[in-house]
Amino acid sequence: MSTELTLDGIVARVWPGEHPRYLAILVHGYGEHIGRYEHVAAALLAHGAAVYGPDHRGHGRSAGERVLIENFEDVVTEVHAVAERAMADHPTVPVVVIGHSMGGLIAARYAQRYGEALAALVLSGPVIGTWEAIDVLLSLEEMPDIPIDPATLSRDLSVGAAYAEDPLVWHGPFKRPTIAAFAAAMETIAKAGGLGPLPTLWIHGEDDQLVPLAGSRRGIEAVRGDDLTEVIYPGARHEVFNETNKEEVLAEVTRFIDRALGCWNSP
């Protein structure tokens, strides 16, 4: 059972764990909302976490013009406010940030800014490195009203069907300021340097057509620190947490977290 909290217009879901071993901060992707991560939260709860996840501004139940992001630094700050609330609720408990797609971009930048307080970082299909769609969209006079093809999300086609029917998912065109903000954030991340000793897990679908593997690999090489684990799933599409082998993916994440917690020293 989850509850909601609101911080300056940002609505976050909380899956409270009793005496948690760690805090998991879930960071969702573009156009979607944290409610699509219910099964991920359940797996983390069963693993001993308390789980917190915001709907980004302009997404899901949070305030703001739909899918308008003018500066990702502001989004990182808002995720940090949720993390600070989690840490206030559970002092001295280690924190793990898990970000998917656009959420992977946010999580990577979060780790660059606040990584000294983290026990681990998980990046799923992150939009870092290069993303050809940005240059294509910025070259157009008008943003095309072409929704994401639900079939590119997962080999489990029920995932795409549910996505297409979800009223909290944005099904309209990108907004130019958001695309420009993506470009700026990816450049900032590339220039900000590596993640040092922070244990980092990068997971990606081999057949990810939305955020192709090769572009993200360039971003991973730019930020990688001393402790990177890479897992590429053959045949998997963009949403590896919703893939046909999602139990395998979640088991990989929890194994990684166990290892990272074993090495964690309270700052």
Rank of each mutant, 00 (worst) to 15 (best):
L5M: 14
A41F: 01
Y22Q: 04
L44K: 00
Y22A: 13
I10C: 14
V40L: 13
G31N: 02
G29A: 10
R13Q: 10
R21P: 04
I10W: 00
E18A: 14
R21K: 14
E32M: 11
L45V: 07
L26N: 03
A24K: 05
I34N: 05
I34S: 07
A49Q: 04
E32P: 09
E18Y: 05
A12Y: 07
I25P: 09
I25F: 02
H39I: 02
G17R: 01
D8T: 12
E38K: 03
H39V: 04
T6C: 03
E18C: 10
V11E: 02
L5Q: 05
H19I: 12
A43M: 11
L26T: 06
T6R: 15
H47G: 10
H19P: 04
I34D: 09
A43K: 13
G31L: 09
A42G: 08
T6D: 04
V27Y: 01
R21S: 09
A46H: 09
L5D: 00
R13C: 11
V27R: 06
A12G: 07
G35C: 09
A46N: 13
A12L: 10
G29M: 12
L26W: 01
V27Q: 13
H39C: 03
G48M: 12
Y30T: 06
E38R: 12
D8L: 11
H39K: 12
A42K: 03
R13S: 03
G29F: 08
A43R: 15
I25E: 05
A42H: 04
W15E: 08
Y30F: 15
L7P: 03
L44C: 01
T6A: 08
L26C: 08
R36P: 07
R13N: 09
R21L: 12
V27T: 11
E18V: 14
P20G: 08
I10G: 06
I25R: 00
T6K: 14
E32C: 03
R13Y: 02
E18M: 05
E32W: 06
E18G: 14
L44G: 06
G9A: 09
E38F: 00
H28S: 06
E32G: 03
Y30W: 15
W15C: 05
H33P: 08
D8R: 14
A46Q: 14
G29T: 04
A12P: 09
V11K: 09
G35V: 07
V11R: 15
R21Q: 09
A24Y: 11
H28V: 10
L7N: 00
A41L: 10
R36C: 14
Y37T: 03
V11I: 15
T6Q: 13
P16K: 04
P16Y: 02
V40G: 00
R13V: 07
R36D: 08
A12K: 11
R36Y: 14
L5V: 13
E38N: 10
L7Y: 08
A43N: 07
